[in-house]
Design a protein around this nucleic acid. Structure first.
Lengths: 196, 196
DNA sequence: TTTCACACTGTAAATAATTATACTGTAAAT
DNA sequence: ATTTACAGTATAATTATTTACAGTGTGAAA
């Protein structure tokens, strides 16, 4: 991404701050007033520069049509998965986790609430929100969400010679060994925890 | 919070979806068009109902001045704290973590990136983003961020009879015992992890 | 070293388009 | 009896765009 000049940076920062405070973008006039410009054209030239350099996108003709490129990913949280429900597609989530795109990237991402302590040595505890990405290549050692025996579980994934090992991160539990190709829902790419 | 009628809910959902998609709120006309209303008054009556019931706030007179009440908390991420810098006030953060307010609540909250494995048995790993809240009461057993010996560290907090124990969650490390009252920066209320 | 293009940073003024509000009225549902 | 759920119309306010003009600095070419 191209570098901004000092003043461009200031304008960009103002837009960010404005959105953080007001939850909607500023108008050209509001930016103009804030910087004590005497003409909206001054602002427009900044917005053009910011857009050209890839920092914002503009919805032309629309009021407050300034969109920050570096922005958020809304992750739907599937609170309770009724055991035996293989479709997370049209889920009835109530919550969203919104995170800067830099954190988890983009893609088909959702969140599950972990039950149990079978992954505790991997730092995944009961009640944690795991961030799961669909449609990614699974490599040995990855933590995956699989649909197995009518339930969703989180395990380490290992492809062995003649079988697949789904290994918990807790010595109290045994690995699950399966012959057939498991129904992998996604790869765990992140975690979010609330601590009381 | 008062319950919404079916149609009010639909309008509210539309506003939420619109914002998720466009990053700025819809105009009255856009809502009107979406629901094929023939008059903006229809929309206004819905917005009034939503505001009265506490679901939105309106910035009167401003274009797209619809604000969702249930919204996000922007947590500044302080990437690297130069050892020996006791002020996190005017920090030079680059990142924000934006989370639904339901997750971590509200308040003076920031995030630090964990270095080291001294809290690994608490499920806090190297590279994790811990969510820290200032100005909260610290109780025994809480995980806290303290400024000690020119550095920030994360430890369990225990107030003993004649001293304070700052205990790591890793048998390889020893507790820090201090007599004087430590400079507690905040309490760890959450965690966010990226998994490669 | 000078010149020239070009990006950056603006002023000024007019216009077009978008957007919100206010008032009046109707009718069904709770 | 009040809330909910609209239509219709008019107007005010907000907001974006466009065109024209100009100074400053920077880097490259001559």
């Amino acid at each position: 991404m191209k570098k901004l000049t000092e003043k461009q940076k200031k304008v960009f920062e103002f837009i960010k701050d404005y959105i953080a405070e007001n939850r909607y973008p500023p108008t050209i006039k509001e930016i103009m007033d804030h910087f004590s410009f005497f003409s909206p054209t001054a602002v427009v030239s900044y917005l053009n520069a910011l857009e050209k350099k890839g920092y914002i996108k503009r919805d032309k003709g629309k009021a407050r049509g300034i969109i920050l490129k570096e922005y958020f990913l809304n992750i739907p949280v599937i609170g309770r998965i009724p055991a035996g429900t293989p479709k997370i597609e049209e889920e009835n989530f109530e919550e969203f986790i919104s995170v800067s795109k830099e954190i988890f990237g983009e893609g088909d991402i959702f969140s599950l609430i972990v039950k149990g302590d079978s992954m505790k040595d991997a730092g995944i505890f009961d009640g944690d929100y795991i961030i799961v990405k669909k449609d990614v290549e699974i490599k040995n050692g990855d933590i995956v969400v699989i649909f197995y025996n009518g339930e969703y579980t989180v395990k380490y994934f290992y492809k062995r010679k003649n079988f697949i090992e789904l290994k918990p991160a807790n010595p109290s539990y045994n690995s699950i060994i399966i012959k057939e190709s498991p129904l992998i829902t996604g790869k765990v790419i992140g975690l979010l925890r609330k601590i009381k």
